[in-house]
Design a protein around this nucleic acid. Sequence first.
RNA 1: GUGGUUGUAGCUCAGUUGGUUAGAGCGCUGGUUUGUGGUACCAGAAGUCGCGGGUUCGAAUCCCGUCUUCCACCCCA
Length: 457
Amino acid sequence: MAQKPSVPKGTRDFSPEEVAKRNYIIQTIKHQFGLFGFQPIETPSFENSSTLMGKYGEEGDRLIFKILNSGDFLKKVDEKVLQHKDSQGITSQISEKALRYDLTVPFARYVVQHQNEIDFPFKRYQIQPVWRADRPQKGRFREFYQCDADVVGSASLWQEIDFVQLYDAVFSDLKLNGVIIKMNNRKILSGFAEVMGAKDKLIDFTVALDKLDKIGEEKVKTEMLSKGISEASISKMQPLFELTGTNQEKLEKLGGLLSGSEEGTQGVKELQFIFNAIESIGLKSSKLDIDVTLARGLNYYTGAIFEVAAPEGVAMGSIGGGGRYDDLTGIFGLKGISGVGISFGLDRIYLVLEELGLFPESVNKGIKALFINFGEKEALYATKAIKQLRENGISAALYPDASKMKKQLNYANKSEVSFTVLVGEQEMNNNKYTLKNMISGEQESVDYSTMESILKS
RNA sequence: GUGGUUGUAGCUCAGUUGGUUAGAGCGCUGGUUUGUGGUACCAGAAGUCGCGGGUUCGAAUCCCGUCUUCCACCCCA
């Protein structure tokens, strides 16, 4: 055999079974998005580079797939840049388009571009692939789907409360119980920096704090010191490392710790409001937790921060995340529009459901009835019955060749067909169909209408 | 982007200190069974040992490069 072809690194083919399972997840998410009042939009798979570049930080720029210009693009490149082998300089001259890196920034672009046609608050959802030039790992791909729901044009905290319920509703529908919805607030993180007297170190501080459950208290402190945060500042934050108890107790401790910061206090108040409401409304199967170490890499969150962890015992990075960004559209020139949104990580949810065996068996059913092919005359007769069955909403097909029965039945077995139908000369003469149940092996000779009603049930 | 790991039949994997013709299980094809599958038995097909180079009388095996897989870091869904 010739050299086997393959797909590019970090991409995958999906078999019929996999597509069925993915569709099951997508349908569940879409259904709840609809119930919560979100409407779908779609945006192009690639955008102008200027729309994407610089929106995800330095790291993000590196991970954006750039699309080469058409034509003899090298001719137009500045001779000096070419000589110096300056990759960055050349990139901007030979590539003007780039693949979508996430759904949030294109959405912000969409809102700004269509601001006059949109009625605010605007609730949209979007389920499309995104691309990142990352190194693949388990649950990390270079092409993957995001399922986002966002609201723009409302600063109300009731949106956050709705999103917590949306997460709970989707994961309950998927029978994925025990999911942990973690919440934090950017204002609380800012408050920490303020109380510490290290406002300029906010990013370094939060990035280090984010690693707490992974590398432990000592290493987090070491990293903070190495970033130039003073020993005194860190010791002021000591209570953070001992933040335990119920959510209510955590909120009280945070309130005390941040009493000197107006912004921090505001953040605690917001969380308090959301938690009170959820406490009163109740969640079906998920758990809501305060996690002040939650920072997430994205620079644009200004209020609530969400992250969803798989149930305990499943080793998987976050299966969803989101937050509030007061000024996302500001980068495209539309100021003062607040947005908040969440995302579901389809590929990772898939891996978790697979690991826990939570896909319903029904997602992967074959056709209802396969007609065995006995030859030309019989096939024509069978095809007429098949036509009628299809018109009545029953999936049915004829085995295309008059192969041996063994082979035809084997095929039916493997494609998980529920029934096979045998129509030979005998049946044709008596106007009957021999219907064989492929699970029990039982078979009976019936007329058309009996067959139809059996297949319908 | 940094460090490590992996690649042998369609799939999962053996393969001795480098030594004739590279194996197994599952799957596939055919038969035992000309209108009865899932079980059993028998037979058969199928491999550029990821790719390229090197060392050697001789390389799946050793060395270098490259691609791929997975893992850690970075970052992230």
